[in-house]
Amino acid sequence: MNKFREKLLTAFTRTFDLPSEVTLQLPRITMIGAIHAYIENHQGLLIFTDSELLLKVHQGRVRINGDKFVLKMMIDKNILLEGNIKVVRFEQE
């Protein structure tokens, strides 16, 4: 049932040309070089240290590694991360 819904939504998004992060609840990650990462639409912060950030997103997790991490802003579902970003990895559940 869930899979079916997923497929339907993807098709819906494709046919009407809608922004996928809105309809599919996917995160939107904007990066400025390797110093800033702006993550919108995440679903919770799991781990934050000065070298790692683990976020829960729709159907999985996003792990960001690097060093000198500072969370510059945390508003609702958006996070602005600052530091030396080295790896951004998506992990399926």
Binding site: F48, T49, D50, F69, L71, K72, M73, M74, D76
Partner: peptide
């Protein structure tokens, strides 16, 4: 709905 910033661990 409590925004926070400059979080350092």
């Amino acid at each position: 709905q409590v925004p926070s910033w400059d979080i350092i661990k």
